[in-house]
């Protein structure tokens, strides 16, 4: 039988996989994909709580819809920024993007 703890552990594991990706990869597109993993981990948690705890309102499902919307907007914008960067710097490695450092 599935319990809430199953979902919480899965969500935590997926979040940590994404965290490793964000911290350890250098390619900006891969970092973006890892952020998507982390957002999905949050969504699993929200929907798990909606299904197990909140039997009146199911607020978690509505919040998950908003998270998916914001994730879509984020990917679109971030990829446009990366295209722009690639055009002007010929690289999307985050190590090369240190123009704001002094």
């Amino acid at each position: 039988m599935i319990t809430l703890a199953h979902l919480q552990v899965l969500s935590a594991a997926l979040f940590c996989v994404g965290l490793y990706g964000v911290l350890a990869r250098r390619n900006a597109v891969l970092i973006l994909l890892a952020i998507e993993l982390m957002l999905n981990a949050v969504n699993i948690n929200l929907i798990g709580f909606a299904a197990f705890v909140d039997h009146e309102q199911f607020v978690g499902q509505v919040l998950a819809i908003f998270v998916i919307t914001v994730a879509a907007a984020e990917v679109g914008l971030a990829l446009a920024v990366l295209l722009r960067l690639y055009r002007s710097r010929a690289s999307v490695r985050v190590d090369d993007l240190n123009m704001l450092k002094w």
Binding site: A12, A13, F15, C16, V17, L19, Y20, L23, A24, R25, R26
Partner: peptide
Amino acid sequence: GPMEHRQWPLALVGALGLF
């Protein structure tokens, strides 16, 4: 690969620690 960045052991410790 997954170990391209020199701070990957730190990242691994951070991720496992958070988990």
